[in-house]
Structures are given as structure tokens and as C-alpha cells.
Write a protein that binds this DNA or RNA. Sequence first.
RNA 1: GCCCUCAUCGUCUAGGGGUCUAGGAUACCAGGUUUUCAUCCUGGCGACAGGGGUUCGAAUCCCCUUGAGGGUACCA
Length: 563
Amino acid sequence: MARILLKVLPKNYFSHRNQQSIIKYNQRKSEGKEVLDIINTEEKEVLDVINNLLEKEMILKMQEDKEMRLRFPPSPTGKIHVGNIRAALFNWLWARKKGGKLILRIEDTDTERSSREFEEIIFKELNWLGMDVDEGPNMGGDYGPYRQSERLEIYQQQLDKLLREGKAYKCYCSKEELEEMRQRQKEAGEIPHYDGRCRDLDPAEAPEDADYVLRFKMPETSEEIVVRDLIRGEVSFSSEDFDDFVIQKSDGMPTYNFAVVVDDALMEISQVIRGEDHLSNTPKQVKIYQALDFPVPDFAHLPLILDEERAKLKKRSDEQAVYIGEFREQGYLPEALFNFLALLGWSPEDEQEIMSREELVEKFDISRVNKSGAVFDREKLNWMNNAYLKEADLDRLLELALPYLKEAGYLEEFGWLMEAGRFSEEREPDRDWLKEVIDLGRDGISCLAELPAEVDLFFTDLKQEDPEAAAQDFQDPEVKEVFQRLKAELDGLASEADYSEESINQVFQQVRNETGVGGRKFYHPLRLALTGRGSGPDLVKFAWLLGQKETCRRLELALEQGE
RNA sequence: GCCCUCAUCGUCUAGGGGUCUAGGAUACCAGGUUUUCAUCCUGGCGACAGGGGUUCGAAUCCCCUUGAGGGUACCA
């Protein structure tokens, strides 16, 4: 009965959204509410049967959840980029949410392009983003080894099995021969595909000492291959659309489509969460699972991250940063990148956007992942990073900011900075002072690399942006009086301890009262005198951080220019 | 070419038959706060790709078209 009903249903009836609506229907029913207004009687009958099935399925699911094993299998053929790391992130989130295991597997079967250096970068960036794994090359586990290049015997066993059972065969065609074949097919208006010429080759006819590859036999008769996807429902393909693909290269290495199946099966991966670019290859993998008598896992194909041209984000599209390292180097906070990436293709039930790692784990649900590709919006990342920057612990921020300030040459003692006591006798910059500066500058930047430009006023000599206009301002008698009084009052503050934000503020207020000069007329020339610019940070704070001596010196300078 | 997937403001997205004159975020614009810039607050601009169905009712379900993306390797 259930079988018949299932046939009648649309092919993706079991997509998660439909499951949700069935759950809704159940809720209504259990609450004793009327349900026939939203569905008709026939549908109700179908739903009731499905309910039974789903219940059983849910029990199975719960068992699966118990030992959920997820994996992240990057290939070390380049620096890891946002596309890869986002897949890792979703696996990590789901594993942590479900109390499952996350396995890191290095897919280094491409001997030409793989390198240990890139592998190290993968470890480093995962670590930076705070994604720990439970099993992997560096910490081991019960399902190792976790590097494909170290699993060659395992593949060989499975390969031998397929060969023995006649499910795979040796192909002696050279690359040139295959290229020629493709070319000919193209010219004849046919779809390029391997024609299976070696499929039924008599072993006796096999050329001696010739290089060969192993090909997997796809079904001779047309059959439907169904991929069960947690995000997209059931996706079906026809076996006709696939040719006999290579599963072992002539150098003895397994190909991706083969190794990934053997590893996922042997490592008992329960859910394969990966990018949508793998969806089209999945039917090939399903056939291998079947040929090897392995249970087929659930799949979840994530929407791709796109560049501004809406194409899959690759190595580098123009100037756009794509490598994780670039974001770290530009001074993005890992928790900001993490948060941002989580929101690419997924959203929580509520409308909160800034979320800690813990909140993300708490709220994440694979069934809320959407299906369409997401453009990597640098503007929004900037906003988010700024939000995290503003909340970050200052001591931590100081450590992170130091290299940028050093790079800009701001941390070498010189002139007034030394005199103002911003460097110790050991010529180390005053950390408390630096923290104040960073605190003032963090509001206006989207990443730490922008910090030096934001706070350059504190580290470079006074330079009037528009000297003539400034000089003109300084000639005003009222302005002169203000400057004179300010200088006298500030100079009069006995010690460095007396020179505080509070006392400066008091002096400012006092002078405003005494001279009757206030508002813009008061602040604008003062700003020019102290900073050389028409806009900038809060002046009281600035004068304080500048120090008593330097502030008075600059007032003196302005008075001279006003002559 | 063939196969697969997808389609809501510029961008990220909510929504899954009535509560949608479509919600949030970002970006942009304006006003307020602040000595200025920024922050912050308030407001504004801005989208259901098109066409057919089904239905009393469609952003939502179905079909077609169009568009976009992915795959089609001895890359992963």
C-alpha cells in the first residue's frame, strides 16, 4: 500500500520542506484542530500512511544521529579558500550540534599538485577559525590513515574486488587516443564520451607492458539512479548519461570518485555534506557504493559561494580575496569570518545576525540551508567585522594590531612621541596609551589593516592639510585669544597626572565661558591647530592622548602662524 | 551539445496557499544626537524573472519559457 502511494506522489515529496508541512499537519491533528480545510480526504489518507512511514524513519534517524559521522576532505592542491572552509564550517556546526564526530581527511591523490605545505595551511586555518576535528592525520583515530596517499592498499583491495567480480576493467587507451575520440565525436555532433572499446577486451589481447587505467562498468541497460539529498530532496539521474569512468589512474592512484566512496564507506560516514559542484558526480559514486556492497550515506549538497559575477568563487576572480589566509592577514577576526560564512546559505529561525560560535551551534540546522548560490558580499563582511572589532577585548586587539602599526613604522620612537613619554626608556611603546589609541580608531575601520591610516594622527608629525586656510583661521583675534588662554591653562596643569581627560574638558569649558567663544568657532580652529585636519576624533580625548607638552607646542605653533 | 541544480530588494536572506500594501540585515539616501567625522537613533529608497495553469484565493503548488550556476578529466 505504502509503495503504491509513494509512486503517486511527486518525486520530491520527501524533501525536508514537505516533511515540515507533514509535521505541521500532525500538530494540528494532535491538537484536535480541523485539518480537512487545508487538505482533501484523499490527501489525508495518504498523509496518514506517510505518517506511519515517517515515524519509523524518524526512529531510524535518531539511531543514526547517535553516531553521526561527518567529514571534511580538502585536497591540498592550493591555499584553502572560503568555498572549502564554508563546507568545513557547515560540517563542523552540524557535527557539534548533533554531538557527532568530524573527520578530516586529506585527499592528496593528485600527485602533481598536492603538497604538504598546502596541507599545513589547512590545519592552520581550521585552527584559526576554531574548528576542531575528532579524527584526522595529526591526531589519528580508529579509521585511519587519514591521508589518501597512505591508503593505497585499501583502494587496491577494493579495486581487485571489482576487477574480480567483473565490475571494472583495464583500459589501455592512451590520452591521445581518447582526445582523438572526443574530437571525432564532437565533429560528428555526438556527445563526447568514452565508447567502451576496452570493456570487452580479451585479456589475451591485452598489450604487454602498456600503461592502463581501471574503468568502472556503468549499467548496460538504462536505469534510474536516485540521490537522496537532505537539502534538495530526491534527485534522479539516468545511467545512460554516464560513461565508464576511470577509477584508477595509470600511476596507480585512485581517482576522486572512487577514493571518496571507499573512504566515506570505510570511515562510516553517515552524512556527506559538501558543495553543490559535487552533485552531478554523485550518481557515479552511488553506483560504486552499490558495486562494493556499501550502504549509501545521506547527502547534503550546499549551495555554492559565488563571486560578483555570480560564478563559483575560484582561486582569484580579479582582486577579490578568497584565501582564508588573506582575511587573517588583513586583520579580520576569526569569529567574524566564521559568523559571516555561516550566514551564507543558512539563516536561523529568528532574525539575529551576530552570533557567537556557541549560538551558531545551538541554532544551526541542516534543513534550514537554502538551495541557491550566495554571492560573497565583502561589504557585509566588513560591517560584521567592524561590529566584532568594536566588541573585542582591547588587550587582545592590541596584540593583533601591533604588527600593523609596526609595519606602518609607527612603533619606532621619534620626536614628540618620545618626549611625550609614549615610549619607555627601553623604547617600548606605552601599551596603555596604545590601547586608548586603538580604542579610538576601531570604530571607523572594517579590518585591522585599515588601522594605521585611521590613527596616523597619533604617530605622524602635525601637517596642515590646507595651510593657507588654517593660517587664515588662526589670524582671527578671538581664536588667538582662545589659543592663548588654552595654552596657559593647560600648561599650568602641574603634573602629567593632572593632565587628564577630565581636567582638559574643564579647561575647554572654562575658556569657552571666559571668552564667550563656543561651538564651531571654538572647536574648528582648535581641531586644525591640534590635528591639521577638519575632522577627526574627539578633541578632548585627542588632546589628552597627545600629551600636555605636544598639545601646548601645537597651540604655540598655531599662534605663530596666526601672526 | 547533454545531464543536474537554482530563481524574493544591488547583496545576504525570511516566508512553503489567506495574517504579504512581502519581514530582517547590509549598502545607499535623508533627518536627529555629537564641536566635526564615525558610532548611535529615526525614517526613506528598493524585490516575488516572464507566461500559462490549479484554486474562491498563488511569492508559495504544477507546467513551459527565460536567465544563472554546476557537472560532463588519468582535478578534487
